[in-house]
């Protein structure tokens, strides 16, 4: 893709404006809603799940995260500050050796990454990790 300098500055400004406006419109609430929709409003415990994310990510386009929740049926990942807070859902089958996975995600800016594990007994466990992002990975 070839962009002239003028176009680049133009799109960057539009993107920056979008990001400046959107957080004040309550992106975090969007994440809360998405989480509530998943858990059905049930309380979540802090034990039984581990989320490993870097403290500082230089490039928001690829941030490697690792999540582990022994015995969980499903693990769902949210990025609270992204335009669409849903990131991925891992469903573990009978052949899984552990309820853990590593993947790479995009982060629009500094925000909380949330992992929620659904246990076979219907309870939920939650882990939160704050990630500072030097360059956002949202393409704005």
């Amino acid at each position: 893709m070839s962009l002239t300098r003028r176009e680049f500055v133009g799109t960057s400004l539009t993107g920056a404006a979008a990001f400046a406006v959107l957080p004040s419109m309550g992106l975090a609430e969007g994440a809360d809603e998405a989480i509530a929709a998943y858990t059905g409003g049930a309380a979540t415990s802090d034990a039984g799940i581990t989320l490993i994310a870097p403290e500082i990510a230089e490039n928001g386009n690829t941030v490697q995260i690792e999540v582990s929740a022994p015995g969980a049926e499903e693990i769902i990942i949210f990025a609270a500050g992204n335009p669409n807070p849903n990131v991925a859902t891992f469903k573990f089958g009978p052949m899984a050796g552990s309820q853990a996975a590593t993947t790479r995600i995009r982060l629009a800016g500094e925000q909380d990454v949330v992992a929620i594990a659904k246990m076979p007994d219907g309870s939920f466990a939650k882990a939160v990790s704050n990630v500072k992002v030097t360059i956002g990975g949202c393409g704005g």
């Binding site: 386009n61 941030v63 849903n86 859902t89 891992f90 853990a100 995600i105 995009r106």
Partner: peptide, 25 residues
């Protein structure tokens, strides 16, 4: 052998060139 190890649903927040690491028994 036909039985699920892991089934991942992805949203646009997954990075370019999706990478996954997991374990199987």
């Amino acid at each position: 052998n036909g039985e699920t190890v892991v089934d991942v649903t992805m949203e646009p927040s997954i990075a370019t060139n999706p990478y996954f690491q997991f374990e199987a028994k």
